[in-house]
């Protein structure tokens, strides 16, 4: 029987993963909730866990070739306090769980979880983050949007490990993020909205809009965003109606124990409208 392991190097981890199928456990803050049964018993994993949180070589956040690279075992709290962390991601991390969780939890864990309400994903979609995966023989880079395919489903192969997340250095003049949760902190999102915009001489050079918890993955429409590129900010009000309708047709929230479909959709569109209003203002 294959046992739980703590690899001592990335190399060792990848070799182990080439030999058997493991459940990768990083910060464990989601997995131990999912796998717990009764206090005092060992959490039950269907595949043996591979505990990678101690891999020092993946615990870093640094600037390299004009990009920000975040190693897979870097804690959210470390990312939060790094001077180069994009503002939008800082805002998001501050709304994630609590300090106790943020010290243990990692960005790559949040990505691998691929929950529709995963907070960091809104920021990563907006920033066009790249996910770097390794197996024993190869490295591949995949965009976050391609990496997450469905609710809790990703493109990661069983022998692959997320080793880092690569983000562009912040260049946006304005960022907006709102997480609507049932309380001020320590809560799961009912709706999340993020917007980034880069304006020069009143002209929109870049605009990005993303919604969380209203679709099976983070919702972002490049087509709608493109319709705004190059426009003067004063043109936004007259486009507002079409933009709202465009997103309204894409948003497909659910009813659950935390909120309802109508509220999620209404609030998501309200947040978008407030963001659009802030552009022309």
């Amino acid at each position: 029987m294959v046992e739980a392991r703590i690899p001592h190097s990335l190399q060792e981890a990848l070799i182990l993963m080439s030999q058997a199928t493991y459940t990768i456990v990083n910060g464990a803050t989601d997995l131990l909730v999912q796998k717990r049964s009764w206090s005092g018993t060992i959490p039950k994993f269907s595949q043996p866990p591979l505990y990678i949180r101690g891999l020092k070589e993946l615990d870093y956040i640094c600037e390299r070739s004009g990009m920000l690279e975040i190693g897979a075992t870097t804690s959210l709290e470390t990312i939060l306090h790094h001077p180069k962390t994009p503002k939008i991601l800082q805002h998001i991390i501050l709304t994630m769980a609590s300090p106790a969780i943020r010290h243990q939890a990692t960005l790559s864990g949040n990505i691998q979880n691929a929950s529709p309400a995963g907070d960091s994903l809104v920021g990563l979609y907006l920033l066009d983050a790249s996910i770097v995966l390794h197996n024993r023989h190869h490295e591949r880079v995949i965009s976050i949007q391609d990496f997450i395919v469905d609710v809790r489903k990703t493109m990661r192969e069983a022998d692959e490990l997320i080793t880092k997340v690569v983000l562009p250095i912040d260049k946006f003049s304005q960022c907006a993020y709102t997480k609507v949760g049932p309380r001020k902190t320590d809560a799961i999102a009912k709706v999340a909205f993020g917007g980034l915009i880069d304006i020069e001489n009143d002209r929109i050079r870049d605009i990005r809009i993303a919604f969380g918890a209203v679709y099976k993955t983070v919702l972002r429409s490049r087509k709608i965003e493109e319709s705004l590129m190059g426009k003067d900010r004063s043109a936004v009000p007259e486009m507002k109606h079409v933009l709202l309708e465009g997103y309204a047709s894409l948003i497909q929230p659910i009813d659950d124990q935390r909120s309802n479909r109508w509220y999620r959709k209404t609030t998501a569109l309200n947040l978008l409208e407030a963001f659009l209003d802030s552009i022309s203002r």
Binding site: A4, T29, L32, G54, H103
Partner: peptide, 19 residues
Amino acid sequence: LIDHQIANSCLVPMANVAG
């Protein structure tokens, strides 16, 4: 406290306290 920082011990597997 793990390395001076608050952590929820109910969500920390023993593997993650090594070192």
